[in-house]
């Protein structure tokens, strides 16, 4: 446990503690709209953290993470609606499904030397493949969608994930903290070193005795397993699933924007990214609505411009710069 906080300057620990404290009391201080926004922020922070394991740590660019969100969501929703299994047990099915999917994609790509952007294309192709499949699978609602019975908002049933937004908020917060701790541990472990070596230079990594194929597979499978929870959460929070939406490439892009803007490969980057991007985009939507401009696509153009600006002017993301300015960097 000590290792999790090793090397962090005191002020960083204090900042982290304060931030967590604010998040813990936030639901009682804000209105329903802000709370719903915070739930979405935490969702993206978590999903971004999961994606970051694969790209940020191990250097394998996935542009199809909506695949794992969608599969996780459908797996748990299926278990719940068809077999009456609670979402926590459903999560196991979801994790098994997404991990298997990640393994298939990873095997196909890495076995045959499909790397870099071609790997990214393959992840999109699989995501689209599965989307079309679900569109044509009537048992799970097909393109008409799969719906979960809507919750009674007055009582919170944690076991079945039925309840008010505040319950979902704390569930997601807990998962975000867990994911952060887990990723911190990963980075400092043998696995983390091997991944970073592979990310930086595969040939050199292999020459140092690292079985590159195996460790890339572990990265893909672990990342897809973690992402499964984001899907389960999505299903039970929104109560409806449409293949067209949940598997869409737009969703994948939304997931990866946070970590990239926040700081690829850093632990705090995905969180910073989610806290910056989601409120900005939502605020923009609100503003446009208020101004009476109701044109679809404006939000996405905004996303695109944000991404462009960050890629051109802040290639390492916001967090590394911020951490340096505030003296919150880790020391060796």
């Amino acid at each position: 446990m000590n290792m999790l906080f090793d090397g962090l300057p005191r002020r960083a620990l204090v900042a982290l503690g304060l931030f967590l404290a604010v998040l813990l009391v936030a639901p009682w201080l804000v209105n329903a709209y802000i709370l719903s926004l915070l739930v979405v922020v935490l969702y993206f922070a978590y999903a971004g953290q999961a994606w970051n394991v694969m790209m940020g740590f191990a250097g394998q660019l996935s542009l199809g993470h909506s695949l794992y969100v969608g599969l996780g969501a459908y797996a748990a929703a299926m278990m719940f609606t068809k077999f009456g299994v609670n979402p926590w047990v459903g999560l196991l099915v979801a994790v098994a499904t997404t991990t298997a999917m990640g393994a298939i994609i990873g095997f196909l790509a890495f076995r045959f030397g499909i790397g870099g952007v071609y790997f990214a294309i393959l992840t999109i192709a699989f995501s689209e493949f599965v989307r079309v499949g679900f569109d044509h699978w009537p048992w799970l609602g097909g393109s008409g969608g799969l719906f979960l019975p809507v919750a009674n908002l007055s009582s919170n049933d944690l076991l079945n994930l039925r309840g008010a937004p505040i319950m979902f908020y704390y569930v997601m917060l807990a998962m975000c903290v867990a994911a952060l701790g887990f990723c911190r541990w990963l980075l400092g472990s043998r696995l983390g070193y091997y991944w970073q070596a592979i990310r930086e230079n595969e040939d050199a990594a292999a020459a140092l005795g690292i079985p590159v194929f195996r460790y890339k597979m572990i990265a893909v499978m672990l990342s897809s397993a973690m992402t499964a929870f984001a899907g389960v959460f999505y299903a039970f929070y929104y109560n409806n699933l449409f293949p067209e939406q949940i598997f869409s490439m737009g969703r994948s892009i939304e997931i990866i924007l946070g970590p990239i803007i926040g700081g690829l490969g850093t632990l705090i980057g995905p969180i910073v990214g989610a806290f910056v991007l989601t409120p900005l985009a939502d605020g923009l939507s609100e503003l446009l609505q208020w101004a009476g401009i109701d044109v679809p696509g404006v939000k996405q153009v905004f996303y695109g411009i944000c991404l462009l600006l960050v890629v051109v002017f802040l290639p390492n993301g916001i967090w590394p710069m911020l951490a340096r300015r505030l003296g919150l960097e880790r020391e060796h």
């Binding site: 930086e200 040939d203 050199a204 140092l208």
Partner: peptide, 15 residues
Amino acid sequence: KPFPGLSVLDNVVVG
């Protein structure tokens, strides 16, 4: 072929 994003120490730790 160094690992440019890692520190010198971490480069050697990997080995």
